[in-house]
């Protein structure tokens, strides 16, 4: 993609005003969004720490299948919490398994956007519009924050942080990314990942047991949807194609194996 001729004066004003606006929005985000998320995560981790039944935490193997099915059968472990300072090696079940899946999807997104930045820097995607560069950088940062939020709860439950990407999707993403030669191709791949993430979170809302888990998933799903809307716009597509979002592309718990 190459830049069109444009009026430098108009765009200089646009750059400045939009930058100021973005800074204002970032401030609002730091004032409102992050404290809210921290409260939800703290509530969740407190619940984990105080749960004597350990109903969020289990050591049994995940049965597989859709998130809902796996969760409904995987939250009855008798394993108890040993404290946040102890790292467990057992597989995660229940809400924590969902958290692990979500984290692995976030890690995958972070890695994919990182690959896009690397490829762009190497000139492999042709001319990269400034707005696309900003988009990729900002979205990568937000996915990093999502992963950190989920991991904070996982670690608080005494387990190791999830640092790997969704293993089931990695081969496909790698294969698809190898074929990407321009910004549109990268945007298409990113849109697929955002759709999957949004669908998985939407599915998770019905799958998790703790209200605090619902809150975390519910606060992230709309953000992934927003990423998708902007990607539609980048691709020249109508940005809000559906009146109701679906769970069709949701990933199953079996994607994450500890």
């Amino acid at each position: 993609m190459r830049r069109r001729n444009r009026n430098p004066e108009v765009m200089a004003i646009s750059e400045h005003e939009l930058t100021v606006m973005t800074m204002d929005l970032e401030q609002i985000h730091n004032d409102v969004g992050m404290p809210a998320m921290h409260s939800a995560i703290e509530e969740w981790t407190d619940r984990i720490k105080t749960s004597r039944r350990g109903f969020l935490i289990g050591a049994g193997a995940v049965a597989g299948g859709a998130i809902l099915a796996a969760c409904s059968s995987g939250s009855s472990s008798s394993t108890t919490t040993t404290g946040a300072g102890t790292t467990k090696s057992a597989k995660l079940t229940g809400d924590l398994a969902v958290a692990a899946l979500a984290t692995s999807l976030e890690n995958l997104a972070v890695a994919a956007y990182g690959d896009v930045l690397t490829a762009a820097g190497a000139g492999k995607l042709g001319t990269v519009p400034p707005a696309v560069a900003t988009f990729v950088t900002t979205v990568k940062s937000q996915h990093t924050q999502h992963a950190a939020a989920w991991n904070s709860a996982i670690v608080a439950a005494g387990h190791s942080a999830v640092t790997t990407p969704d293993a089931a999707l990695v081969p496909t993403v790698k294969s698809d990314f190898a074929k990407v030669t321009d910004v549109s191709g990268a945007a298409m791949l990113a849109l697929t990942l955002e759709d999957i993430a949004a669908a998985t979170y939407q599915s998770a809302i019905s799958a998790v047991k703790a209200t605090s888990s619902v809150k975390v998933a519910a606060s992230i799903q709309p953000v992934e949807m927003q990423h998708a809307a902007i990607l539609h716009f980048v691709l020249g597509q109508y940005p809000v194609p559906l009146a109701f979002s679906t769970t069709t592309n949701a990933r199953p718990l079996t994607d994450y194996t500890n």
Partner: peptide
């Protein structure tokens, strides 16, 4: 506008203005 070429004309800040929060607020 909606076109595949329009994105090249957008200023850098337009790439992030549409999603200011990493976590959707409820205030």
């Amino acid at each position: 506008t909606l076109s595949t070429t329009n994105v090249a004309n957008l200023p850098a800040a337009a790439g992030s203005v549409g999603f200011p929060d990493a976590f959707y607020p409820t205030s």
